[in-house]
Design a protein around this nucleic acid. Structure first.
Lengths: 352, 352
DNA sequence: TTTAGCACTCGATGGTTTCGAGTGCTAAAC
DNA sequence: GTTTAGCACTCGAAACCATCGAGTGCTAAA
């Protein structure tokens, strides 16, 4: 939490009103308007003095001499950190959210639904990072023979996901072989971590080679093939409602918008950014350049992490113009994260 | 094939040059420029006369009195149907395409790769409709017990896809039960059509009820649950490179672009349009309003269908501004469709 | 410390002018 | 009877200009 310059009550209040009004209207707000809006009975001239101070400190700027003032990034920051009065989320929205999230069967659909809800409610872009499991535990493997030498491998892990892969084997395996191999793997390795399994498979192979039956060695080989490149990147997050961002005058130029969309597609940067939010619990906000990524310069990102079995495994959030209704977005993101966590926990595959 | 008005050789040639130039420059082309560009030794005045004729027929328009001419939709149509000289696709591009498509393991990746290739080569949007199988044949089913009452069903069909689904059962099934059920289903129904299976499951249930063992009835019930809502819509197509469309001055206004992107997201309309292309073999082109969908008014769509085992199962194509380099896009789409078909056929799961 | 007053700034708006590319038409040339 | 030169005309784009008004900073008075 950065230290803020000492500001008089009055100055703070004025800043608050200014930011609120700027967020509402989208245009620099002048001293006259401010004098009217704020309850204090002050003349425009006085306000101008205070504004000049705020500008010196760096909390507001004016686009040119004869325009009103608008918040700078630090202005927004101060506003959000210390002035913002958060509107509680409307109950019917909470209900609807809970409804939508709890009725999703498929966990992938669940994330999609969450993202879509975020974007639809805010009319901005919704973002849900897929759950990240550092330890992926093996649960069950199944081999289904396709044509000769081709094998469908089905791998169930402790994530809520099932992975299929077609692999090519060096020789033909009979159904019985495969069954035996699967049985061996399932009984030996259930619950173990995927990567350690691969390692031990390798080691075991050496010493097993002469002590054990051919089937088991085969199983090991096939499993090794199957587990290989499991690390292949999955889609890292679900992003919905990008198009909504086209409506905001703040982002209305093609250049900017294109590079924003490009950033969305490229993903890496966003993933980095989101990863940083995993550790911190609660809502985290990046305003404009704070994100450190050029493409997001005009945007703010409001995130919260969600938990699975008590551990923060993913992040979700909303991307929109810097000038957004934080007092509504923040509680929404917060609640959505909690509801998503709850829904996930309910769906989580508890050991049989 | 519509009938076109009789046009002199010269007029046709002029139209051709005009369209080519307009596609290249993007600005209405005037008589002077045309007089220079076309080989014929004609004065601007003469050209103007011819242009007036072409305008009467409806092949060109001018945005205002003192601007050059640009092709109308019918102008483009005529150009494409009878004047276009197609540039053969560069060999290295063919090679690269074949390379990329033939090295994809996963069939989903394959489609994605095709779409991406289309969009990257053309700098427009690439589009690949997923293969449509009217008859989905059952190949293999597998049940994996999760927690009590929860069951992972793995269904392999003759598509190149594997479907997983978690289902909740009314009572607990033992592993043996499940194994028996799977065996029964696999041996009884292999190769049959999914929907007919569901029907016969229902019918069989009635008469089996007292004649057969409990397991089989259970199997039928579980299978019924599993097959239920298999009709759930999958993602109908892969679309890549939409962002490229932001670069075209022709589409540069937000309103228009937004509704275009919205159409992409909504999907139904596009699917309809693409479906219409399934029957016709070869390359099919929709220019501007020809598509019948408002959002595509300023765009052209170049499509070709691809085949699997000799049957047209899907459509791919490119979406871009009406003013696109048809002579390059057409062969690209054509070849890509063929290569994708070839790659798919190679990957196709032949019966074991 | 606050405020009234005033000169000043600067974007936005709208009108006017100019420029040039291009047209249509007519009358002459081929 | 085509083709072309010539010419008047149109219309958008760009440049320029004046006006307006919202808003500022500063100074001096309350």
């Amino acid at each position: 939490m950065p230290k803020y310059p000492q500001l008089s009550e009055r100055a703070q209040h004025l800043l608050k009103v200014l930011v609120e009004r700027y967020i509402g209207e989208g245009q620099p707000v002048g001293s006259r308007a401010l004098a009217r809006d704020t309850g204090l009975n002050l003349s425009p001239a006085t306000i101008r003095n205070i504004m000049a101070d705020l500008e010196d400190i760096g909390l507001v700027t004016s686009p040119h001499t004869s325009a009103g003032r608008m918040p700078t990034v630090t202005g927004y920051r101060f506003f959000i950190d210390t002035l913002l009065t958060i509107k509680p989320l409307q109950q019917d929205i909470v209900h609807q959210l809970r409804q939508e999230l709890s009725t999703q069967e498929d966990p992938d659909d669940l994330l999609e639904t969450a993202s879509r809800a975020l974007s639809e409610i805010t009319h901005m872009a919704g973002l849900v990072m897929l759950p990240r499991h550092e330890v992926i535990a093996f649960r069950h493997i199944e081999f289904i023979p396709l044509s000769d030498q081709r094998l469908l491998v089905i791998l169930v892990t402790n994530e809520q996901k099932v992975h299929n892969k077609v692999i090519h084997t060096s020789r033909h395996f009979s159904s019985a072989d495969l069954q035996a191999a699967a049985n061996f793997l399932n009984s030996t390795y259930a619950g173990k971590d995927l990567t350690t399994i691969r390692e031990s498979l390798f080691n075991d192979l050496q010493e097993m080679r002469n002590r054990l039956s051919q089937e088991i060695i085969d199983a090991a080989e096939v499993a090794d093939l199957a587990l290989k490149d499991r690390g292949k990147r999955r889609k890292p997050f679900v992003l919905t409602g990008e198009i909504n961002l086209m409506d905001f005058a703040d982002l209305a130029d093609m250049e900017r918008l294109r590079s924003l969309f490009e950033a969305f597609h490229q993903k890496e940067d966003l993933v980095h950014l989101l990863d940083r939010c995993l550790e911190t619990p609660g809502v985290k906000i990046f305003i404009g350049e704070e994100s450190g990524y050029r493409a997001l310069d005009q945007c703010s990102l409001v995130t919260a992490s969600y938990t699975l079995n008590g551990e923060a495994v993913g992040v979700l959030g909303v991307i929109g113009p810097t000038r957004m209704a934080y007092e509504r977005v923040i509680p929404l993101v917060d609640v959505t994260a909690k509801l998503l966590g709850a829904a996930l926990n309910q769906k989580s595959l508890t050991p049989s």
